[in-house]
Amino acid sequence: MKTIYTVLIYFLFTSLICAQERYLTKNGSITFFSSTPIEDIKADNNQVLSIIDASSGKMAISILMKSFMFKKALMQEHFNENYVESDKYPKATFKGRILDFDTIELTKSKAKVTGTLTIHGISKEITIEANFAKSKEAINVDGEFIVNLADFNIKIPAVVSKNIQENIKVSFKFNHKPYKK
């Protein structure tokens, strides 16, 4: 009986410690940019949810496709209705982990993040490099990477194929704060 209690108390404490080591932002930003001689397309999303578990270096990101704001309403409409089909696939997600998370210092340092990126219902393993700055009060991450539209089965009609790049530059910036509640 005693051992059961010991085990229970042990689990209780470890879960409490883990809960304190979560860092989170609900206002992360992701911007993507496509530039062709015909037109530049840029969209911002400032409502990205990102969580880092500081004890394991695991990272989870959730993105609402309809939160991407374009300069032109028509672009936003085409993006949601035709390209990423956000009624069918309302979210994009990333689940993965930060490599060598323990070695990241207060000052800016580079680290690799590896995991599964899911856009438009299609999952792909990616590994990218990002800039990290870690302290007790915050974990800040920013960086950029390239998304190939064909990889995620996002089809661009031939009529507008000259207006949109095949490889889209995506940049991100997440300022995580310790999660309390």
Binding site: K26, Q47, L49, S62, L64, K66, S67, M69, P90, K91
Partner: peptide
């Protein structure tokens, strides 16, 4: 309304 993550989001 653009959706729901941990919270409902309005922009």
């Amino acid at each position: 309304c653009t959706g729901y993550l941990m919270d409902v989001i309005l922009v």
